[in-house]
Simulated scan of single mutants.
Amino acid sequence: MTLQSMTGFARLDGQIGRYQWAWELRSVNGKGLDIRLRLPPGLDRLEAEARRRLGQVFARGNIQASLSLQAGVGKVEAVINDAALDAVMTLRERLGDRIDPAPLRLDTLLSIRGVVDFKEEDEDDGAKDALDRAVFEGLDKASASMKAMREREGAALGGVLGGQVDVIERLATVVELDPSRSPDQIRARLENQIAALLDSPQGFDRDRLYAEVALMATKADVREEIDRLKAHVAAARDLLARGGPVGRKLDFIAQEFNRESNTICSKSNSAAVTAAGIELKVVIDQFREQVQNLE
């Protein structure tokens, strides 16, 4: 599976019979899948199926799908109101000795309100089904087009994220190999600090000495943080290679990256380690910001 960003756009139009239709799809970042449909009056019957089809293609993002429909002139039929026509004829008979007895003309009947009405013929179920099929086929094609756009952007994002993961791994190695972490350096630093404690005018406190030594030894050890960083690097690379909707998982890994970098900075007793830790935090923030765009 390929990576997808959550940003995309597609438009597709078509025609069937006297109808012209057009789909317009837009997608932006979202915590989940939020589909908002705008359908023309009278086509509410399409909503459930349209949502189902979009849900099969996209797993995450705020998606707006709008359908426009224009209808050309259909067949028109004349509808005669028999009751109104009978009333007119009855009235003519009653007034026959008072008005012109000439036969009623068609144009006269048409001018009498309510006698004849003109309306478009109702479409049968077959025509409605054909329209529905054409509209859904258009939705599928528009969805595929927007998915392709999201995949192109996802591939570009994958390259950026992969490069940032490489930087995180490199900085973790910088911390791991820093001379301040060598046993000799740690031993010398502890010896100096112990000597300072022993020379204190307040006298020697064995319990405090042991506590301080244990604290300094703990602060000097960032082995666990480095190991976890490397494990998270491997997990991030696996997700990027796997593809699909992995944005949420990568966001969780970004949080773990940040946690380990914070701990490294807090334990650091070396300017080089502190600098690497700060750079780690900068890259991790950039990584997390980019991850927000992934499905």
Rank of each mutant, 00 (worst) to 15 (best):
A220R: 05
E93P: 02
T274H: 02
P103D: 09
A235W: 01
G8P: 03
I168N: 01
Q193E: 15
K31Q: 14
K219E: 13
E260C: 01
K141P: 00
N262C: 02
L198Y: 07
V79S: 13
M216P: 02
R94G: 04
R181P: 04
T274S: 14
W21I: 01
D238R: 13
E260G: 00
R53S: 01
A134M: 07
S266Y: 06
G17H: 06
V165W: 00
F204N: 04
E212G: 03
T263A: 07
V135S: 07
V160A: 13
K141Y: 00
Q193F: 05
A142G: 10
A156M: 10
G126V: 15
R11M: 04
V115W: 05
V213Q: 09
M89A: 14
A10M: 11
I99L: 14
D205N: 14
R187K: 15
L37K: 06
I253A: 04
K219N: 14
R170T: 13
D82E: 15
K128I: 09
F287A: 02
I186S: 08
G55C: 12
S268V: 01
E151I: 07
L229V: 09
S266W: 06
C265D: 01
I99Y: 02
L110S: 12
E224S: 07
I284E: 00
L25F: 03
L95T: 15
A172M: 03
A84W: 07
A188V: 09
E24L: 02
N29H: 03
E256C: 02
V73G: 03
V160Q: 14
E176D: 13
L39H: 08
R228E: 05
S111W: 04
A214L: 09
I80C: 13
A22F: 01
R187M: 13
V160E: 15
T274C: 03
L131V: 09
L177W: 07
G32V: 07
P41Y: 08
V115R: 06
V88F: 11
E151M: 08
L109H: 09
D227G: 07
A196Q: 14
A130F: 05
S182R: 14
V233G: 02
D44Q: 12
G158I: 00
V291P: 03
A50L: 02
N192M: 11
V167P: 00
S143E: 03
D205C: 05
M149C: 04
R242Y: 05
A144K: 12
A84K: 12
G8E: 00
L95D: 10
V175A: 09
L110I: 08
V57P: 00
